[in-house]
Design a protein around this nucleic acid. Structure first.
Lengths: 231, 231
DNA sequence: CGGTTCATGTCGCAC
DNA sequence: GTGCGACGTGAACCG
């Protein structure tokens, strides 16, 4: 990993065009040729960047650029697409290089997959008498997160989200339309389950006869035995 | 901006939990208190991070951590939420600090707004005799990108995307349903216009009587006079 | 390799 | 501040 603090301007040409005027920034060159241009604010997203795999070519500036004060020109070329990043360096304020080795990677807990596993194990959270048919019930247009049976024996399709948005309701609607064409399953009800559900997603859901359920992940994990996987 | 190369382990607790085992990484502390943990690979997304506003507190490790080899413990606390990042530093390999100043920011060209402006100016791209009614035609469920009239005088609702996906078709469908309830406008046709349209989005669109149009941004910009805004 | 869906999405704009 | 949609979305998973 190479770190350069430099006064530079940056141009990106690819899926769109973008330009960064002359200013002091951090240039981060990773081992795979990717480059990140960071300012001292914003969040984790760089001002501009090139994704790996890419190659960095360093060149002396053309005369016209030289006169504008460019001391070095970097061209970062994507190996797969014709995306290109051009960095005109006017002044290098600091530079260092470090060997970091391969990272063991991130371990996560609490993503949708965890939520799905917990809800499948605790399907009675939705109501007394509910039983699981199966997770990831496959249809022609994609898998339904959970298929269950309610106390009356009716089939229930459950769409699960961490954050319940209008998209999720549309998705569940498409599944329900398809599932209800199957005489062995029909009639199929829908439940939209999420940790948070946006008001208008709720409105749309109820308008289509879909029930909404807000899930408490911590409570559900508390019930589960294997709660302490991470620590 | 502060840069530290350190052997460290990282734990995040917030919307989910995440853990990074001990390894050598770059720790980047920005002026607004945000922290980025980068490895020497992956892409521009850090392995872990804390978004601003946040505060970094440096503490001596507890005895139990000290015995495990921790020389310094960073706690990065989000100012708005109770998200927290804990970085156990075992060894600092390098450290530097730089004053970057405020960045003038990124200038973009070629995003959906540019596409919309160009299509509105060149509405005849869609067919002879087309005329613009207005951009961002407001409805109760949101603005229709472009409302136009075709050669026969029929109203046309145009949904514009850079990448045409199934979502866009759903969105346009909702608009059409609503617009067709208005006797002054009905009947309203739909056109789904994008730089690229996915095959199944096309299938869904045609199934609903929506036409698809693929747009050539470079050609449209070429027609436009004010092509050289960026360079 | 393409298709689909999730995300600690982030970001910017309009209300 | 909040809601909403675009994004060079990126990243993971699955065929």
């Amino acid at each position: 990993m190479r770190l350069v603090i430099a006064r530079c301007s940056v141009d990106y040409v690819g899926r769109l065009k973008a330009h960064l005027p002359l200013a002091t920034r951090l240039l981060l060159v990773k081992a795979d040729g990717s480059v990140l241009v960071h300012s001292d604010g914003g969040s984790y997203k760089p001002l501009n960047w090139m994704s790996p795999p890419a190659t960095l070519r360093v060149a002396s500036p053309e005369d016209v650029d030289l006169e504008l004060g460019v001391m070095e020109q970097w061209t970062v070329q994507s190996a797969k697409t014709d995306d290109r990043l051009i960095i005109n360096i006017h002044e290098k304020l600091d530079e260092s290089s470090h060997d970091l080795g391969v990272d063991p990677g991130l371990i996560k807990d609490g993503v949708e997959a965890d939520l799905q596993r917990l809800l499948a194990e605790q399907i009675e959270t939705l109501g007394t008498g509910y039983s699981l048919i199966r997770r990831e019930y496959f249809t022609a247009i994609g898998p339904v997160d959970i298929l269950a049976r309610d106390a009356e024996g009716a089939t229930v399709a459950i769409e699960l989200k961490r954050r319940g948005d209008i998209d999720g309701v549309e998705q569940l609607t498409r599944y329900l339309e398809l599932l209800n064409r199957d005489p062995l399953l029909a009639p199929v009800r829908g439940i939209f389950a999420a940790q948070q559900i946006k008001p208008q997603a709720k409105v749309l859901a109820y308008d289509r006869g879909i029930d909404c359920v807000t899930l408490d992940y911590d409570a559900m994990r508390g019930v589960d035995d294997s709660e302490s996987r991470l620590f």
